[in-house]
Design a protein around this nucleic acid. Structure first.
Lengths: 323, 323
DNA sequence: CGGTTGTGTGAGTATTTGCCCAAGAAGCTA
DNA sequence: TAGCTTCTTGGGCAAATACTCACACAACCG
């Protein structure tokens, strides 16, 4: 999608159509690429390209339908030990350093479960790389009965749309009414935040966010590669100050210490995001994995900020080993 | 592996567990089999075996998330032209002679959609190779609110359980209450059928079948390889008689002519199956593809026996070309 | 106790797949 | 229309994968 000029929507459409057909013949019908090439009257290389296009465009979704005992076990342990309502543990790829591999698929599946309910729900959605990857895995589904509300602003410090704000991506995939929050993530001053929040466009969105039935959140670490810093929402100095104040993680822009207590003042005084929906009234599900997020996950649990967790084996083990 | 005891169930369980893990690393994490072998501490060949076991055991489900324009178009045409409420058309593999490829997956997906509803439903289920394949594709799902009722007997002429009766397979997969029909498919006489149907064990099942909200049915042809004949439910002579009487297809054991009118007498006078649920009160979905079933599908549509159809591109094209 | 069978393993090998490259086609600019 | 860029195509080749085979080991059987 990046380097693609949009002057050929119909061409792309038929290309994807062919890709889907090739992918179908390959994955469902079990043909070899040679056979596909013969049947579709193209060269083998082209067939290969179609198939790999189908994969890279996310047309092909693979699901594993087997409860791996160890993962179930870890999930149950997490649930019991930390009083969570819902946990999901996916296998870990020992060699990969990805922080989305697996949890993204699992999060997409969990979202689908919620979206499939007939009763209208309000789905709150955070931000971040993990969630972005999850939305990419989401299958299109029509659910006009639901509302999806962004819990955080979608404007980058430079004024452009924040890349890792996912409300627009999710709106693309599902036909639900979506409510973005046309705000910066962090306002320039507490006063500006109040001003922004008082706007007629924003207030209803904040109110809607407070009524969310379920929320999916990413957890950001505050290490040297903190997403909040890397993406330019806070400065190096602000990051250092937060860390000195004991902050270990950030959820929708708001920083928390190791006990899950919000840091007083600093950037938190200016964060324009909606409050995290309450665990009393909503399922608040965090999707996070990897050692960098460990502290943050532990903090979110300790502070009872979340009551659901989607993570991977290794992180689950570390969480259970700690404390 | 050190001391392996013969206790098969747990052995298979851990094997499947390993297979799932290998499949996960392969399909989700994108490892090569070499890498998987290294990570799991097994030889590359064993890794390959694990992965292919994961496939053959149906642990790996592939779905294509792209509406192929031609298929959608054919589906819409079928729906309009034949007044069906629901149609699904899957791509055809030009080289394959399978009569289940693709439609089985689609049928499983459609079943899942129904089973996921919260309101309790009664699902009627027919029999046959296509349905059997569909059930194999079905993902386990817990839906204790629903009931699944077999529309046809599950006893072979030789007294064994009929192989292509799928009620037990579906009961295995989903945690719904299931109602098999402990009857032969075709009784030895009309009188015996009445006797059987009057049994205290059978009557409630027949009554339940009549209240089905949705039914999935296979369509059997009556050619020389007619499943009803091949599986020994009717004799060669009976098959010939049916054909002479104008029968072109069979649904849950009952023979119909080219207009979808039941053949009078002959084996139909002895069929012990429940009546096909009415299109007035239920979604009656046939899953069938291939040229041998063409006539049967057309007949079922003409006789308004069904109001839903899952088939493939080629069959859809032929159906639209005929008449 | 020796033979049989069934299952799992690694080696070897044929097939299939992924990717790079050079050549051709298509579009864009001047 | 020449010159340029961008995209697409198929050949070639290395890597990855599937399959066959022979062997090892344990359970089973007479």
């Amino acid at each position: 999608m990046a380097g693609q000029i949009m002057s050929k929507p119909e061409l792309t459409a038929t290309r994807l159509d062919d890709a889907a057909r090739a992918g179908w013949l390959y994955y469902v019908a079990g043909n070899t690429q040679d056979e596909i090439a013969a049947k579709l009257g193209i060269s083998r290389q082209s067939a290969q390209r179609m198939v790999s296009l189908a994969i890279s465009e996310g047309l092909v979704k693979v699901r594993l339908d087997h409860p791996i005992a160890r993962c179930l076990d870890l999930a149950a342990q997490l649930r019991d030990r930390f009083g969570l309502k819902m946990t999901e543990v996916v296998p870990t790829d020992p060699g990969s350093s990805s922080t989305t591999l697996g949890v993204a698929d699992a999060a997409a599946a969990e979202m689908t479960r919620w979206l499939r309910t007939e009763a209208p729900i309000v789905l709150g959605i955070g931000t971040g790389r993990t969630l972005k990857a999850a939305i990419e895995q989401l299958s299109p589904i029509e659910c006009p009965q639901h509302k999806v509300v962004s819990l955080t602003g979608n404007i980058s410090p430079d004024g452009s749309a924040a890349y890792y704000n996912v409300i627009f991506n999710i709106a693309d995939k599902i036909k639900a009414r979506s409510f973005p929050m046309p705000l910066p993530v962090i306002a320039s001053s507490p006063e500006e935040r109040e001003l922004l929040h008082a706007q007629a466009m924003i207030r209803p969105v904040l109110e809607l966010a407070a009524t969310a039935n379920v929320a999916f959140l990413g957890i950001g670490d505050l290490g040297d590669e903190a997403p909040l810093f890397v993406d330019g929402f806070i400065s190096r100095t602000e990051l250092d100050e937060l860390r000195r104040a004991g902050a270990v993680c950030e959820i929708i822009g708001r920083a928390f210490d190791r006990n899950g207590i919000p840091i007083a003042g600093l950037t938190n005084a200016r964060v324009a995001s909606a409050p995290i929906p309450s665990c009393e009234t909503a399922m608040v599900i965090a999707t996070a994995m990897g050692s960098r997020k460990m502290q943050g996950i532990a903090a979110a649990i300790k502070g009872k900020l979340i009551n659901g967790l989607i993570t991977d084996e290794q992180t689950a083990e570390m969480l259970l080993a700690s404390k």
